[in-house]
């Protein structure tokens, strides 16, 4: 038996290292367009790394059993092991500890970090959802845009979006910013984003304000392009908008 366990341990170590390597190399994330992206992506990575040895253990035992413990019929019995010893207790202890670790980090710590990042926003943008388009309003500048016109946002700014809906449920999501919240009729929900780095929907699908709560016929197409530009450029754009609105 001793030999079995040694080999199993070696296989576990190998599978875990390979999995960790693969997870380290895996880069599925869309563009980092906000400070929040670092929090969620780090949490994602942390969970991948924490999950790797667990995955490795299951694979190792499966693989080893298929390799060493084969039979061709029901005639021979396996060892009489009831599992009443210390192993279940140890397993319970280890899994509870792992669970507690994951709850605290990256769970609760990430949550606290996101809350911290949301304090005292620099500007507020009002977002309103309707079937099947977004309306975005910059209340301080008195500018309002809708339809397929891009929502322009200033770089390096803490922006709070106050979101509501006029008819049914929709959801606010810009993949580059990561965070998501439903637009609920009769209620204002909010999400705060620290825009970081310029980006444009023209070249990057991660910069789109996509509805992510099923809202019927045109749900898939309920997306507004997003552009993050430098603060100066943003101010210029706002002024242009204001001028246009004044002419009308």
């Amino acid at each position: 038996m001793q030999r079995h366990y040694t080999t199993l341990f070696v296989i576990w170590a190998i599978v875990t290292v390979l999995t960790l390597g693969a997870m380290w190399a895996w880069q599925p994330f869309p563009t980092h367009g906000a400070l929040e992206a670092a929090v969620t992506d780090d949490a994602f990575r942390a969970l991948l790394y924490l999950g790797s040895p667990v995955f490795g253990l299951v694979i190792a035992v499966l693989f080893y059993a298929l390799w060493k413990f084969r039979a061709t019929g029901p005639d021979e019995d396996g060892a009489y092991i009831e599992g009443k010893g210390a192993l279940p207790r140890v397993w319970l202890g280890v899994s509870a500890a792992l669970c507690a670790l994951m709850i605290v980090w990256p769970g609760l710590t990430g949550l606290a970090e996101l809350r911290h990042l949301a304090e005292n926003p620099d500007m507020v943008v009002k977002v309103s959802a309707a079937r099947w388009s977004w309306t975005v309003e910059y209340p301080e500048a008195g500018v309002k845009i809708t339809g397929k016109e891009p929502m322009v946002l200033p770089d390096d700014t803490r922006i709070r979006f106050d979101i509501t809906a006029v008819d049914i449920l929709h959801a606010f999501w810009v993949p580059a910013f990561r965070l998501k919240v439903d637009a609920v009729p009769g209620m204002t929900t909010s999400v705060t984003v620290n825009a970081h780095g310029e980006g444009d929907a023209e070249t990057d699908a991660a910069y789109r304000l996509q509805c992510t709560e099923l809202c019927g016929l045109q749900h898939a197409n309920m997306a507004m392009p997003v552009r993050v530009v430098s603060e100066d450029e943003f101010k210029t754009w706002l002024r242009e908008k204001q001028a246009k609105a004044a002419v009308r």
Partner: peptide, 15 residues
Amino acid sequence: FLAGLGTIWAGKLWL
């Protein structure tokens, strides 16, 4: 999972 893995360990697996 412990039960599943513990059961196949040192068994006579008939595939």
